[in-house]
């Protein structure tokens, strides 16, 4: 800051506080709604402060869910989401780091072609090739399975590029010293490269966990068996079902539960989160 202008500072605080309130409004409204009963919304005035039904609503959703919506208990959906998010995050990191290792530390015929194949995935988001991808997954018998939920999403050019960048900045002498020390490629990968990429992996994990948890369209398509519903995709089914009989307090409780894990990850690991966000865009 160049000069001290109390007026400007006060204005900056005002802007920020307003921003925090506007950004936080949906969360507050959802939370408040999730602590009331269905009849509280019927009175005409919308409650703005938490009611007394927090424990009741949340335990109902976690343990039993809304049976009329055809969705399983929220706890089950959260578990599915967790499994999917972990499979996607770990899978992406695993296959990306080995591909980046191959591309950076080896020279082999068709290396350029392999690189381009990976690069092209950047240009083919799932939304674009949705019907044929669904047909492939259905053909492989992967509908209603954790593999079907995660494997088609774990190819990632972004993660591969990130690791490629990390490896390229490692000094050449490190691999030379390792070779003289008698380490072959896999030993070098395990003993030197992996430990040195640890923070990059952690930062990427944060981003990919959120990415995986928040998947919507894909789980919606490949799961018809409610035992495999994920919470983000399930919430829509629930909202649809309750349209006739407004149970918004339960939908909002589910929404809060759906936000909780990824938001906790962002706030708890803010430093890694920011690092991951910035690095994946390089």
């Amino acid at each position: 800051m160049i000069e001290n202008r109390p007026g400007l500072n006060a204005m900056a605080h005002l802007v920020l506080i307003l921003g925090v309130v506007v950004v936080g409004l949906p969360l507050w409204v959802a939370f408040v709604a999730s602590t009331h009963t269905a009849t509280d919304f019927m009175s005409g005035t919308v409650p703005m402060w938490p009611g007394p039904h927090l424990v009741e609503n949340y335990s109902l959703m976690l343990e039993r869910g809304v049976s009329t919506s055809g969705t399983p208990p929220v706890a089950r959906m959260m578990l599915n989401s967790l499994i999917m998010a972990l499979l996607i995050a770990c899978g992406k990191i695993a296959i990306s780091i080995t591909s980046a290792f191959a591309i950076v530390y080896f020279r082999f015929p068709l290396r350029g072609l392999a690189f381009w194949c990976i690069f092209v995935t950047l240009m083919l988001p799932v939304e674009v090739r949705i019907v044929p991808t669904f047909q492939v997954v259905a053909g492989l018998g992967l509908l209603n399975s954790y593999a079907g939920l995660s494997v088609p999403l774990i190819a990632s050019a972004t993660a591969t590029f990130l690791f490629r960048q990390v490896f390229l900045t490692m000094p050449d002498e490190l691999v030379e010293a390792a070779r003289i020390d008698g380490a072959g490629p896999m030993k070098f990968f395990r003993d030197i490269l992996l430990p040195l990429s640890r923070t990059n992996m952690a930062a990427l994990f944060v981003i990919l966990f959120i990415y995986g948890w928040n998947q919507y369209l894909w789980p919606l398509l490949v799961t018809t068996d409610s035992q495999y519903y994920t919470i983000v995709a399930g919430i829509k089914r629930m909202a649809d079902a309750v349209d006739g009989l407004p149970q918004w307090h339960l939908v909002m409780a589910t929404a809060v539960l759906a936000m909780l894990p990824p938001v906790a990850v962002v706030i708890g690991m803010q430093r890694l989160f920011v690092k991951g966000l910035v690095e994946t865009e390089k």
């Binding site: 002498e173 390792a178 380490a183």
Partner: peptide
């Protein structure tokens, strides 16, 4: 054995591990 200009020590290993790595392999 080689001594490099930038030393090329393994940054995540202690000095002892650095010295021992080649022998261990």
């Amino acid at each position: 054995a080689m001594v490099f200009q930038n030393y090329a020590l393994y940054p995540h290993m202690s000095v002892r591990q650095n010295l021992a790595y080649g022998l261990k392999n």
